[in-house]
Write a protein that binds this DNA or RNA. Structure first.
Lengths: 113, 113
DNA sequence: CCGGATCCTCGCAGATACTG
DNA sequence: CAGTATCTGCGAGGATCCGG
């Protein structure tokens, strides 16, 4: 039955990891913040998220799109224009990020005296 | 003043990253869960957290100790015994993890229909 | 038993050049 | 402008050995 409990915990682990994977990494947060701030075009985002390569930005946005957090819209101009924006669902991250912020803030106070 | 807002956001970013760094990575969560479950000895932890190398376990535990989330106690037996346990402060992670779990759980429902 | 030191590899991400 | 393709390095992390 100790086994039982372990299994339960492993099942708890997966959703937590999912949430974490979406937010962790070098670029996810900065990109999400940039989108919150209203940067929408690919170039704009690349300028806003300092240091990111086109390849990375492209990959990360694709990730976010797969997770339905970001919507990608192509305009048939010439040359093409592409806009990214947070979905309604994507905005539900705000609450979670706030929680992380709260804990992180008090952690700083503890660690850096 | 758009500049002002950006700066504000960058300051918001840091504590969030701090919180994230503590929880993200391949091993942090499994180790913390194992500690919650009451595994305390180094060997026990290594058995419980499947696949982790000694080097990694050692490094991760040191990390957690530096962040005051884990307490390390050496018993002067022969050979020496070492026990790790979550500090009171470490247990405050539980609430945060629960939040991540909630979001991650509903995310799974959305993504996997 | 605990965990540091050393060596080695494998994959991620940066730089650059290219296409529609 | 918005991305893709290729090439390359570099460093996280695994395996193993050793010492306290």
């Amino acid at each position: 039955m100790a086994e039982k409990i372990k299994e339960e915990c492993n099942k708890l682990l997966l959703p937590v990891s999912d949430a974490l994977d979406i937010l962790s990494g070098k670029w996810k947060l900065p990109i999400i913040f940039a989108l919150f701030l209203g940067n929408h075009r690919f170039r704009e985002l690349q300028r806003e998220v300092k240091g990111i390569s086109g390849k990375m930005l492209s990959k990360e946005l694709k990730d976010l799109e797969i997770n339905q957090l970001v919507k990608r819209t192509v305009f048939d101009t010439s040359p093409v224009t592409v806009e990214y924006s947070l979905t309604e669902y994507g905005r539900t991250l705000e609450k979670l990020i706030t929680e992380l912020h709260n804990w992180g803030q008090q952690h700083r106070n503890i660690i850096f005296r």
